[in-house]
Structures are given as structure tokens and as C-alpha cells.
């Protein structure tokens, strides 16, 4: 299986360990991820400012993948949502495709509507499959309790995701965690949003949203949060200390990207998965495993 990996804006600069571990794990599981250096921003951040621009940015990225005859595998949930939405729109709405092609033509590009988009974790869940993943596990992580943060755009709006998991009762991440031998922690605020999208508009509210989940997860005695989106990572990783400082609380909740969790279970060393490069260094966790 071969797909174009779409890194988006944040991952290649701020979440290198996510990219590194995803590529490492993918290689082991027979998923070849191809870099397309010309990819730009997916378009999501400008959707609320200028719809047409967002759609055209997304369409250009789709066109780049189509030139190479590849479907897209994303690492960021927001990229997943806008690229999926636009790919589906263009595949079914001929008028929009025509108009889009006219604009792409000005850039010397074309698009015929063939590219499909899937989040990396959804590829693991649906295409690689839990069975294969379980078989690849060499070092079950049964000493860890891991709370999954699904985030929003991985599952919603559900109508663009073929109902592969239910946004009101999601289970894919928990099952993927369980496949590594770790204990998937259930918690009340599991479905809630990280608040990242309004960080620049109302920091107080955004951080409060993140905090509600940090509290909940900490209280459930989780060893780490399982993340699949760099946007959410900003809230729980980079901003974890900031949230704590404002409250005079010291959170020490490591965040792990799912491919890091899986990689550890597959017996890959923490160095190769970049664990120490994560925004919260999971020292205790690494000690426990080695």
C-alpha cells in the first residue's frame, strides 16, 4: 500500500516526532508513505475567512497527489476534514469541479476528482487492520493506562467519514490502544474538543476547555494521552504548563502520538520514535518500559 503523506503546517515544524514515528511504523506495516514537497497548507485555517480560497488550496493539494496517482494519508485531523470534504465535493459536484479546474488551470494544474483522503490512524484501523497490528506487537504495553483524545475532525462531520466510527460513541482509538496491550482509559470528557481552534480568539476559554480534559484524564490515573492531531498537541503539550501555571497546579501528563504507542509495542526504541522530543518528555514512561 502506497499513499502520499500530507504533513500540513504544524507537524513538519513542531511535531517531528509524530512524523518520524508515523513513517517508521508505517514502513514496518507495509504502508509506504511518499512525501510530496510541494504540498501547502490544507486550506482549513482560511475556510472561515474565505471559503473559495480554502477550497482551492485543498484542491491544489489533491491535484498534486493525483499527478502522482496516490491517495492522501493525513496526520492532522483538521487537514483530514477539509481535504476529505473537498475531495468528496469535487468527486460528486461536476459544476464545482469545472470551476475549480478553471482556477487550477491558471496555476498550470488540473484535477479530475479521483483522490481519496484518510487519516493515518483510520488507515491503520481500516486498511491495515487490528489483526495485523496485534500480530506486530512484540512488547505488549500492559503496564500502561492510556486515555485517547479523539478530537473533533477525525470523526466529524460524520457524513464525510462514511461512519467508520461513531462520533457519539467512538471506539477506534481505544481499540487501537488495546491492540498494543495497553489499557484504554475511559473518561467522561472523552468526546470533548481541545479548544485549539479558538486559542487565538479567546485564550482563556480555549485553555479552560483543554484543562477540563487534563483534569479528567489525570483523575482517571492515566499514564499518557494518546493524540492523533498536532492541533490538539498544541493544547495538551505545549500549553500544558501554561494551564497548570495559571492554576498553580503541576500537570505531568505525557502526550504520545498513536504511532509512538504502537511503535513502542512493536519493539521499536523510544529514540527512533522521538519520544524525548515530545512537548512533555515522558521520562517516567520510558523508565517503566526499559
Amino acid at each position: 500500500m502506497k499513499m502520499a503523506v500530507f504533513l500540513g503546517c504544524t507537524v513538519p515544524v513542531r511535531n517531528l516526532s509524530y512524523e518520524l514515528s508515523a513513517k517508521r511504523v508505517a514502513g514496518e506495516l507495509g504502508l509506504e508513505l511518499v512525501d510530496i514537497p510541494d504540498f501547502s497548507c490544507c486550506g482549513y485555517p482560511v475556510k472561515s475567512v474565505h471559503h473559495e480560497t480554502a477550497y482551492l488550496l485543498a484542491a491544489r493539494n489533491l491535484a498534486l497527489a493525483e499527478e502522482r496517482g496516490l491517495d492522501i494519508c493525513t496526520l492532522c485531523s483538521a487537514c483530514t476534514s477539509v481535504l476529505t470534504e473537498v475531495s468528496r465535493e469535487l468527486a460528486t459536484n461536476e459544476i464545482l469541479l469545472d470551476e475549480t479546474c478553471k482556477s487550477l488551470g491558471m496555476l498550470g494544474r488540473q484535477y479530475s476528482g479521483k483522490v481519496k483522503v484518510k487519516h493515518f490512524v483510520r488507515v491503520l484501523y481500516e486498511d491495515i487492520g487490528l489483526g495485523t497490528i496485534e500480530k506486530a506487537v512484540k512488547r505488549p504495553l500492559d503496564m500502561f493506562r492510556i486515555a485517547s483524545h479523539y478530537g473533533c475532525h477525525y470523526l466529524k462531520p460524520s457524513k464525510i467519514y462514511d461512519g467508520f466510527d461513531h462520533p457519539e460513541a467512538p471506539e477506534s482509538l481505544d481499540r487501537l490502544v488495546a491492540a498494543t496491550g495497553a489499557f484504554p482509559v475511559d473518561y467522561r470528557t472523552k468526546k470533548d474538543c481541545c479548544g485549539g481552534a479558538i486559542l487565538g480568539v479567546d485564550e482563556e476559554t480555549a485553555l479552560s476547555m483543554a484543562r477540563a480534559k487534563l483534569d479528567d484524564i489525570s483523575n482517571r490515573g492515566a499514564d499518557a494521552i494518546n493524540l492523533i492531531c498536532p492541533f490538539c498537541s498544541v493544547m495538551y503539550g505545549a500549553n500544558q504548563r501554561k494551564i497548570g501555571a495559571g492554576l498553580n497546579v503541576k500537570y505531568d501528563l505525557p502526550i504520545l502520538y498513536y504511532p509512538q504507542i504502537l511503535g513502542l509495542a512493536m519493539g521499536i526504541s523510544h529514540e527512533e520514535l522521538g519520544l524525548m522530543q515530545n512537548p512533555i518528555r515522558p521520562r517516567a514512561l520510558i523508565a517503566k518500559i526499559s
Partner: peptide, 10 residues
């Protein structure tokens, strides 16, 4: 409700 056909069994 979201418009999706969920594959869900409870």
C-alpha cells in the same frame, strides 16, 4: 442526525 449511517452495535 449528522446524516451518517453509522456502523454501530450496542
Amino acid at each position: 442526525s449528522g446524516g451518517a449511517e453509522y456502523k454501530i452495535d450496542i
